[in-house]
C-alpha cells in the first residue's frame, strides 16, 4: 500500500469490516416495522384521547381495581421470588450435593415452559380437588380465583430472574473479606448480612426489578388461575383485552399505555442498577 493511502485507511480503520450498510438496513427495517411502528400507533392513539379523558379512564374504579390487583399480586410474587431466589443462588453456588446440576437446570423450567401451559398446570394443581388445593383447603387457604392464584402464576413465570442475577456475582465474590471476617470471629449469619449481602445487593435488586416487571406483564399463566372476576381478580392487561373486545379502543389504549410506561420505567431502573452493579464489581476486583 502506498503511503498516500495510509491516512485514509487509518481514519476508516473502524469500518474495515464489510456489511455496515446491509446490517444497519436489516436491523432498522425489522425494528421499524415489527417493533417501533406498532408502539408509535399506541402512543399516537394515547395522544389523540387527550389528558382529561385519559385521566377519567385511568381513574375509573374498574381500571383502578385492576391496576391495584396487578401491582399487589406482582409485589407478593416478587417477595417470594426474592427470598427463594436468594436461597437458590446461595445453595447452588456455595454447597455441593448430589443432583446440583439437575437442580440448576430445573430453575429454567419457568422460562422454557409456555405460560399457557404453566397456567393450565397451576390452576389444576391448586384447584380445590387438585393435589395442592386439596391440601390447602382444610387450612382455609383458597388459591384459585383469588389474588393468591394471581400471585402464584406471576411468581412461577418469573422465578429464574433473581437466581440468575445473583448466581454469577456470588460465584465471583472475592473470598478474602469473608475469610477476614471469619478470622475476626464473626458469626456466619453476621458475615452474610455485613459482608456478602452488601456485595450482591446491586445484582439482587436488578433481579428483583426484572421479576417484578415480568410479573406485571404476565398474562397467559394468570388468566387460567385467576377466575378473572371484574373488580376482584381481573389483572390490568386482561382488562385492556376486554376493552378491545368491547371495541373500546380508548379504554384499551389508556391501560396499555400505563402498563407500557411502568414497564419502561422499570427497564430504566434496572439498566441504571445494572450499570451500578458493574461498577461495584469492577471496583471490588
Amino acid at each position: 500500500m502506498t503511503p498516500v493511502n495510509a491516512p485514509a485507511s487509518t481514519r476508516r480503520s473502524k469500518r474495515v469490516l464489510p456489511g455496515f450498510g446491509l446490517t444497519m438496513g436489516m436491523t432498522l427495517t425489522y425494528l421499524g416495522v415489527i417493533v417501533l411502528l406498532p408502539v408509535i400507533a399506541l402512543v399516537l392513539k394515547g395522544a389523540e384521547i387527550g389528558p382529561a379523558r385519559f385521566f377519567a379512564i385511568a381513574t375509573a374504579p374498574r381500571t383502578m381495581a385492576a391496576l391495584q390487583l396487578t401491582l399487589t399480586a406482582a409485589a407478593m410474587a416478587t417477595v417470594f421470588n426474592a427470598v427463594y431466589g436468594l436461597l437458590m443462588a446461595w445453595v447452588l453456588v456455595r454447597y455441593d450435593f448430589p443432583g446440583k446440576r439437575l437442580l440448576d437446570a430445573m430453575v429454567d423450567i419457568p422460562f422454557a415452559l409456555p405460560t399457557a401451559v404453566a397456567g393450565l398446570a397451576l390452576s389444576a394443581l391448586f384447584a380445590t380437588n387438585g393435589w395442592y388445593g386439596a391440601l390447602l383447603e382444610p387450612l382455609g387457604i383458597k388459591v384459585v380465583f383469588t389474588i393468591w392464584g394471581v400471585a402464584v402464576a406471576m411468581s412461577f413465570t418469573s422465578i429464574p430472574f433473581v437466581i440468575r442475577a445473583v448466581q454469577p456475582v456470588l460465584e465471583d465474590l472475592d473470598p478474602q473479606y469473608e475469610q477476614a471476617a471469619v478470622t475476626l470471629g464473626a458469626h456466619p449469619f453476621t458475615i452474610f448480612c455485613r459482608v456478602i449481602f452488601p456485595a450482591i445487593l446491586p445484582a439482587f435488586l436488578v433481579g428483583v426489578t426484572l421479576s417484578f416487571a415480568r410479573s406485571l406483564g404476565e398474562f397467559g399463566a394468570v388468566v387460567f388461575i385467576a377466575g378473572n372476576l371484574p373488580m376482584e381478580t381481573e389483572i390490568a392487561s386482561l382488562l385492556a383485552v376486554i376493552r378491545l373486545e368491547e371495541y373500546d379502543y380508548n379504554g384499551a389504549s389508556v391501560i396499555a399505555l400505563m402498563l407500557l410506561l411502568i414497564a419502561l420505567l422499570l427497564l430504566a431502573v434496572s439498566n441504571l442498577m445494572q450499570a451500578q452493579a458493574l461498577r461495584y464489581k469492577g471496583g471490588g476486583s
Binding site: T27, L31, V35, L36, L37, P38, V39, A41, L42, K45, A213, L216, G217, E218, F219, S237, L238, A240, V241, L244, Y249, A252, S253, A256, L259, L260, A263, L264, L266, L267, N271
Partner: peptide
C-alpha cells in the same frame, strides 16, 4: 441495543394491542 431488547420488557399483551391500533 436498548430498542432491540425492549420487547423483553413489554408485556406481549401490549404488543398485541399496539398491532390492533396499527
Amino acid at each position: 441495543l436498548t430498542l432491540i431488547e425492549i420487547p423483553f420488557s413489554i408485556s406481549p399483551i401490549i404488543a398485541g394491542i399496539c398491532y390492533l391500533l396499527l
